[in-house]
Simulated scan of single mutants.
Amino acid sequence: MRNCHDWQRRSERCIKNSQNSFQYRQMMVEELRKFIDFDAYCCSVTDTQTLFSIGAVTEQSIEDVHQKIMTFEYAFEDVNNYRKLVESGQCIGRLSDASSQSLRYREILVPNGFSDEIRAALMFQGQCYGFLTLFKKMKNAQSIFQDDELEQIKILMPVMGEALKAFYHSIIEERLSTEAGESGIVILDKDYHILSMSTKASQILALLRSNEGLSDGQLPKPIQASCAKLQAEDNTPISLLVPIHDKGYITIQASFLMTTDLQQQIAILLNEASPKEMLAFLLTAYQLTPREKEVVVEMMRGIPTKVIAYNLGISSYTVQDHLKLIFQKVGVGDRNELVWKIFSRFQINE
């Protein structure tokens, strides 16, 4: 069994040899294959707040059923739901430990020849940056994941979590360039088939597919997740920010449409993240506490330390302590650098 230091070295080598998170995850899955016998996989990166998939490296046999898996994820309380793994602190689960209780196992995995599944939340510093899911097929000589394989993945999880955090934050330094006012729209039927789209939407869809190595006919995971969540939440509109390497962040918004003959459709809006959306995202992405966010917003307005202290009902020394932690989390040395890194560079004036 490989220890944490060994996985750290392998991870660093994969980081060095990859240009983005997609390539890194591909390489790490292949490294894992040297020590664990599995037949299929899906390794996603997630939005740390909603835990939606914002891109995945997926083996083809799973790609074929991924949409069904996403639908079950949000529509049913099942064994090892991704959110449940994170919120419970369990972080990893083997389906064969409770497969008789799983609708996903009976309705999706077994009909497609799979006998077992491991789901692992790739956590670092209390945040989930992705999920690793491994599958075994019934024809495999060892059709159920063994305890030592489970333990090996437990060792790997924080290593990959830390690496995915670094990739996640590196994209904060980038910004998608589009013309003001531009927007893309995609219309889907209830089965997520594309009915029509605008030219801008076609361009952004191409970016999303390239980000996951998908073909033209495949629907990107963030859109799959948004649609599945929309249907499960009974018409509650969904909004998600998705990182695109070398491009920046785009927004995906999903909502229902109803045709004149009462046929349900889904509208997907695709656009560059607005200043307001980027501000909310950046404050959360750097893991600022609610109080730290308040300090930053006050500081953004040009308010001096003593007035910030008065407005928030705390001492000036406490404000300074908050600022030190904020600088550390964002990776800057002073106020001016913080203002540039979070606000001026993105023309955030709100």
Rank of each mutant, 00 (worst) to 15 (best):
196 S>D: 14
200 K>N: 10
204 I>Q: 14
205 L>Y: 11
206 A>R: 15
206 A>G: 10
207 L>M: 14
207 L>F: 10
209 R>E: 05
209 R>Q: 14
210 S>G: 15
210 S>K: 15
212 E>Y: 12
215 S>R: 13
215 S>M: 08
216 D>N: 11
219 L>C: 07
220 P>F: 02
222 P>M: 00
222 P>S: 00
224 Q>K: 12
225 A>Q: 02
225 A>E: 03
227 C>R: 02
228 A>T: 02
229 K>D: 01
230 L>E: 02
232 A>R: 03
238 I>C: 02
240 L>D: 01
240 L>V: 07
244 I>Y: 03
247 K>W: 03
247 K>F: 08
250 I>R: 06
251 T>L: 01
252 I>K: 02
252 I>D: 01
254 A>L: 02
255 S>I: 01
260 T>P: 01
261 D>A: 09
261 D>Y: 09
262 L>Y: 14
267 A>G: 07
272 E>Q: 15
273 A>I: 04
278 M>N: 11
282 L>F: 13
284 T>A: 12
284 T>C: 10
287 Q>H: 14
289 T>R: 07
290 P>W: 02
290 P>R: 05
292 E>R: 04
293 K>P: 04
295 V>E: 07
298 E>R: 13
303 I>P: 11
305 T>E: 12
306 K>L: 08
306 K>Y: 06
308 I>H: 05
309 A>L: 06
310 Y>I: 08
312 L>S: 05
314 I>V: 13
314 I>Q: 09
315 S>V: 06
316 S>I: 04
317 Y>M: 08
318 T>M: 08
319 V>M: 09
321 D>K: 15
321 D>C: 06
322 H>S: 07
324 K>Q: 08
